[in-house]
Amino acid sequence: MPRVLIAADKFKGSLTGAQVLEAISAGIAEAVPDVQVCSSLIADGGDGTLDAAVSSGFTRVPVSASGPFGEPVETSYAVRDGRAVVEMADACGIVRAGDRRDALRATSRGVGDVMRVALDSGIRDIVLGIGGSASTDGGAGMLQALGARLLDAEGADLPPGGGALARLAQVDLSTLHPALAETTITLASDVNNPLLGEQGCVAIFAGQKGADEAMKVELEAALTHYAAQITAAVGRDDTALPGAGAAGGVGYAAMAVLGAGMTPGIDVVLGLGDFTELLPGSDLVITGEGALDLQTLLGKAPAGVARAAKAAGVPVIALCGVASLTPQEVVDTGLAAVYRLVELEPDTAVCMRDADRLLRELAARAARDHFVN
């Protein structure tokens, strides 16, 4: 019996990752019922990473944490065999911000809150998914939640947000959670930007977090000052490391202060579940997300799945809502074909509204193309 392995991410704004897997599975079963279907929920370090971990056998542990503007939120981490998966997006990411965008005041404290609880429980191996952030505070809030003291000239703790970093006068890392010294932290992210400059987190990402041009100038100056203070405290300059600009600088703080290592988020998530076990012997891999574009080529989930499938000699196709990749870019990604919801329904608003039905139809079409025609 032929086997299809579905490894897909969410269709942002319309379907969760689990709903995507269900719709594709149903479409295949309708079109070619004699095909065995296996599925693996994936993510790239952003929202959905916790769900992917839980679907692969991790246990969810509830936690109370600070949201992106300091409000209390109920989130969780996932644990298995002494390893915890922490998702920044669910604790204090932009999905928690609603319609509010405030790049100067949003904080990364919530992800540090979750890490602290995991450390207190005895965890010494943390996968830290940092996609989908709301903040541009250089990871300062995370460090404060983990015990670091970031003080102004009067010796007071800095308030939340990247804007406050301009007033940083003293960095005291001696009060960091003691368990961090014996903890392995793996950053899961699809962002390779440095912290500062034309490709840094402010220039590239702060606009989508609510920063206008004046705010960007203020944030860049504040982060530059903050990074100089951190460099002096740790004895090295990590601002140019790939991934330092991830999550508004959380990547920088995690690498420079916590000793974390950066790994593409999709590679981390694929390693958590049973994808690598299911891949050999599969006749087709189906991946996808809401939009396939140039960001896909930079390490989004479908590109990681395509890379792994291609290395195993298994053909891979993608189902998506829309795609702006050129034919050559599709080939470069390792995809044999791309199927789009807009091929069935040109109105993107209808595609968003009826994504479940249309994705089932699209999956059926793809299955017939591959196994019948």
Rank of each mutant, 00 (worst) to 15 (best):
G82P: 08
V32A: 11
A349C: 11
D157T: 01
V73I: 10
A106P: 01
E30A: 13
S66G: 14
Q36W: 15
G110R: 02
P264W: 05
A206F: 03
I266G: 09
A367S: 03
S108H: 01
S135F: 02
A301L: 08
E74T: 15
P302N: 12
V61K: 14
S135T: 08
L284E: 12
D125K: 07
A227K: 03
R3H: 13
A246F: 04
D34T: 12
S133T: 05
A118Y: 01
G45R: 04
T184R: 15
H225M: 00
A211F: 04
G129S: 09
A240D: 03
K209E: 01
Q328G: 13
G27P: 07
L292E: 08
H225Q: 00
A240H: 03
A303V: 12
D237H: 07
R101Q: 05
C92L: 05
P327L: 08
D237C: 07
L297Y: 07
A7H: 06
E22S: 15
D44S: 02
V331H: 15
I204R: 02
A303S: 14
D152I: 00
L258E: 02
V35F: 11
G46I: 09
L298Q: 13
G235W: 00
D347H: 04
V350C: 15
G271C: 14
E289S: 07
V111A: 00
P72T: 07
A148L: 00
G251H: 04
V79D: 10
E361H: 11
S25T: 14
L325V: 04
